[in-house]
Design a protein around this nucleic acid. Structure first.
Length: 562
RNA sequence: GCCUCCGUAGUUCAACGGAUAGAAUAUCAGGCUUCGAACCUGAAGAUAGGGGUUCGAUUCCCUUCGGAGGCACCA
């Protein structure tokens, strides 16, 4: 249901070759779609205004049912669509397809999206939360665009950070608390980092622990296995709350050996060589990618050691066509090095690194060491409490169970929306005050519009699709809603093309805002006549449906009432 | 030192090289006996500086200033 597509066809019929890109006029009074004639005029050598006028004359004879009027404004040809006609097409399409409205045609490609990648033995803060949000929305965007998708997680369960944490617990004989062990481990890691920062000579002790661990020290392995589970349980608790699911789980520990084997092969084939102190490196200077370190001089592994093997494992085990990794942009240079190395090794696959910018606080970058960090649970708790208070003041008669369930959904909508409303490639400056605000460009604002619509539909007992009467929709606010509904698929496409969930978040807000505008200017239930009431009910139901579809891409659930 | 990204209302963010640079928030002034005021209406408020390319630049190129990140044993 894309009206822009219809107009493009018209333009082609009228003899326009090449670009038929349309834009939206700055003011709705000027038209619903616009075609700029600059390029066309350039080709023919005529001036743009005259070109626009002669194009209009040609189009006039070809006009189809949905085009009501064509006007020329300077170098632009502006199209006005017939509100009743597009309303009928768009609304019936939305109501007929329901949840499937906006889903694209099946694609052959199988894509793996790897995201979250938390490190065990570390804290889970809102930077990790942003990764989960962006990654899971990308998964949804691919799915909704018809791709087969495997969502993958890659757990950092070994490496220097694990060793550091275990070393600290053992050395200072820390007592394990009975609950929240995962969080406690994160705390231990922070303390360990601090201890080493204060006494740099302790670093060698932690390194020794890593060597022992990688060599298979029994006692350490036992402690590692036990503690690792605590972190994993912690992560799963968070994923459950966020309603995020993974089809594939990879662990650094399972690709460490294959990684080391690969290093051997790379040395043999002379892709890699031995560098300072016996470390293994790949010289990428001729590609402007500096030197890539893939094995430490003490023989222990690095991220790179394992990532080399992981890339292969993904394709072999899951028969995918494309592999996407969602990572903090601070790692994007590293991934360039990694991909180049794989290419030099003769392994050419469709590998993509989607980099998103990190979350920082107004005081500066988040750092556990200095305490300048906002943990996931801390944020959830604060937002939840704030929503809870709000609901209690509005609905004194609600049962506690209902209040808590509603509060949780609203809180999550606020948090997720807050993370997704910024373009992925922009640094987010996290401000607690605005995270706790539920007005304006926020999740709760969108949920509120849905709740309002629910309330109307419930009162009217609206069900189903209308056979006729859509032509009664004629107000400009109604027309804009219809145009926006029809544009949903296009929005999803754009978001996927740019790997940018914020496009969808913005759309949700714009649609909700447009509905509120309509709502305040026109009454649905008290419209002039029965048929208009029905038509407006159908329009409202479609808006609700599309908002729900769009929000579900953002892993946000709506509430019946709030 | 080299490389990358970013500089837009007080603040947080938008704008395939196109018409009058949009929102949100904060501020000020209004709107509930009305389908739910977590809402709506109005006012005021911005492209860091200087060059260039173009019919047209917030967008592309150069430069100055300012901020962030990366560049071999961290992940």
């Amino acid at each position: 249901m894309q009206f822009a597509g219809e107009i493009k066809k018209l333009l082609q019929k009228a003899g326009v070759k090449g670009e038929t890109d349309l834009s939206i006029p700055p003011n709705p009074a000027m038209g619903d779609f616009a075609f700029a004639c600059f390029n066309l005029a350039k080709e023919s050598g005529a001036n743009p205004k005259a070109t626009a006028e002669s194009l209009r004359v040609k189009l006039e004879n070809l006009k189809s049912g949905i085009v009501e009027k064509i006007e020329v404004a300077g170098p632009y040809v502006n199209f006005f669509l017939d509100t009743g006609a597009i309303a009928k097409l768009a609304i019936s399409d939305v109501l007929k397809k329901g949840k499937k409205f906006g889903v694209g045609e099946k694609q052959k490609e199988k894509v793996m999206v790897e995201y979250s990648q938390p490190n065990t033995h570390k804290e889970f803060h809102i930077g990790h939360f942003r990764n989960v949000c962006i990654g899971s929305v990308l998964v949804n965007l691919f799915r909704s665009s018809g791709y087969k998708v495997i969502s993958a997680n890659y757990i950092g369960d070994i490496g220097a950070h694990v060793a550091k944490c275990l070393w600290y617990i053992k050395k200072y004989q820390k007592i394990v608390p009975p609950t929240n062990k995962g969080e406690w481990l994160g705390q231990m890691y922070v303390e360990a980092s601090r201890a080493i920062e204060e006494n740099p000579e302790l670093k060698s002790e932690a390194q020794e622990t890593q060597q022992k661990l990688e060599a298979g020290d029994k006692e350490l392995i036992k402690l590692w296995k036990e503690t690792k589970q605590w972190s994993l349980q912690e992560f799963k608790k968070i994923y459950d709350l966020l309603d995020v699911k993974f089809d594939a789980w990879f662990y650094e520990s399972e690709v460490e050996k294959p990684g080391k084997n690969m290093i051997g092969e790379l040395l043999k084939s002379a892709v890699a060589k031995t560098g300072e102190g016996g470390a293994v490196i790949v010289d990428l200077k001729e590609f402007g990618l500096e030197t890539f370190l893939i094995l430490k001089s003490d023989g222990t592994s690095l991220y790179a050691t394992k990532d080399l093997a992981l890339a292969k494992l993904k394709f072999e085990k899951y028969k995918i066509d494309k592999s996407i990794v969602v990572v903090d942009s601070r790692q994007s240079f590293y991934f360039k090095q990694l991909f180049k190395t794989l290419e030099l090794a003769g392994w050419k696959k469709d590998l993509k690194c989607v980099a998103y910018e990190f979350v920082r606080l107004p005081e500066g970058a988040m750092a556990s060491r200095t305490g300048n960090v906002v943990l996931f649970w801390e944020l959830y708790h604060d937002v939840f409490v704030s929503v809870l208070k709000e609901i209690k003041s509005r609905h004194a008669n609600w049962k506690l169970k209902i209040i808590e369930k509603t509060a949780s959904r609203i809180a999550l909508s606020a948090m997720k929306f807050d993370m997704l409303k910024h373009a992925a490639d922009k640094v987010v400056i996290f401000d607690k005050k605005s995270a706790l605000s539920f007005d304006g460009f926020t999740g709760p604002y969108v949920l509120y519009a849905v709740a309002r619509i629910n309330s109307i539909l419930k009162k009217a007992r609206f069900k189903g699709i209308l056979k006729e009467g859509y032509e009664l929709l004629s107000a400009p606010e109604e027309k804009r809603l219809v145009l926006m509904l029809a544009n949903f698929r296009q929005v999803v496409n754009e978001a996927l093309e740019q790997y940018n969930p914020s496009t969808v978040a913005r759309y949700c807000f714009d649609l909700a805002q447009q509905f509120n505008d309509f709502y305040n200017k026109h009454s649905v239930l008290k419209a002039d006549n029965k048929n208009l009431i029905k038509a407006r009910l159908a329009l409202s139901a479609s808006v609700k449906q599309v908002l729900e579809n769009a929000l579900s891409l953002l892993i946000i659930e709506t509430v019946e009432e709030m």
